[in-house]
């Protein structure tokens, strides 16, 4: 326990000392928030502000997961920092748990701040089930950090890691409905949309903020369940494939484990697709 607390406390201090972390976690999503809020927030559609808030949160979650957890883990391995930890009696578990918890602690105040600003500056109604919404967003955040860590554990080099991250990040930004509204998706794009893990985060948040739904509504519960599976699956796989040194390479076949983590989302996408048909 002592080591978990020490790692989390250190991780938080380190994160707050890095300008890049502050920028990508707070300033960048805030910039979007205010930018879009000025355009859409005052429009008569009540959904305008919810749209802006969910977009900013999704940017934050994806950035925290893929860059904050994934890329950073690769960096620590490549710089020989993890080697120093390898010498000690700890297992990868406290490091992985530490990464998830730290990400959450840094992120949650930002979410609360954004919701409050949306409410008080732009008159967005407060979500009916605030606590449940925060739980849902937390699950999303930890699930995406888990995905980030899986990417880190299957990428042999920073270059590979960056490619994988971009392959996940950009489609999710554009096809999850976070930026481009899902109503405009047709055909193949709509099918792809339903296979994006971020889609379920965006949809769940909008259900809860726009329609006053709670976490126990069928669709939201399914999304939450899938995120929990991702957290557990991602955690197990990152543990199993964890490498302390960049000299240890992973075999090509082991990379297929990424698909295993995505499996719950693939099933969800397939169900949605069948349902639409």
């Amino acid at each position: 326990m002592k080591q978990y607390l020490a790692i989390i406390a250190m991780d938080i201090k380190l994160a707050l000392r890095l300008r890049a972390v502050i920028f990508f976690n707070y300033l960048f999503p805030l910039f979007f928030f205010f930018g879009f809020a000025t355009f859409l927030g005052r429009s008569d559609r009540i959904g305008g502000m919810v749209y802006v808030v969910t977009m900013s949160i999704t940017f934050g979650v994806l950035g925290s997961g893929f860059f904050g957890a994934g890329i950073r883990a690769i960096q620590e391995r490549e710089l020989g920092i993890l080697r120093r930890y390898k010498v000690t009696p700890i297992t990868p578990l406290p490091l992985l748990v530490g990464s998830m918890v730290t990400g959450w602690i840094i992120f949650i105040p930002y979410i609360v701040l954004m919701l409050l600003m949306a409410h008080f500056i732009y008159q967005m109604p407060m979500p009916a089930h605030m606590f449940q919404l925060l739980v849902f967003i937390s699950l999303g955040l930890i699930a995406f950090r888990s995905l980030g860590l899986v990417i880190a554990s299957v990428a042999n080099t920073m270059q590979e890691g960056t490619i994988l991250v971009q392959l996940c990040y950009f489609p999710m930004i554009f096809l999850s409905g976070a930026t481009i509204p899902e109503e405009v998706f047709k055909g193949v794009i709509k099918i792809l949309h339903n296979f994006m893990p971020a889609t379920y985060l965006v949809r769940g948040m909008r259900n809860m903020m726009l329609h006053g739904q709670g976490l126990l509504e069928k669709e939201n519960l399914a999304a939450a369940g899938v995120m929990i599976l991702t957290i557990l699956g991602g955690g197990l796989i990152s543990m199993k494939l964890f490498r302390w040194e960049k000299e240890e390479k992973i075999r090509g076949r082991a990379k297929l484990w990424v698909l295993v983590v995505l499996l719950p989302f693939i099933v969800l996408g397939a169900l949605q697709w069948l349902h639409n048909k």
Binding site: K2, Q3, L5, A6, I7, M10, K13, L14, R17, L18, E76, L79, G80, I81, R83, R84, Y85, V87, T88, P89, I90
Partner: peptide
Amino acid sequence: GVCLQATNLPAKMRVQEALELFGSFYT
């Protein structure tokens, strides 16, 4: 106790913090 040939610590970790963090890993 181990002193590795090639290793690194996070750039923004302070000296005393490093000792306390690593100390917490041992019985």
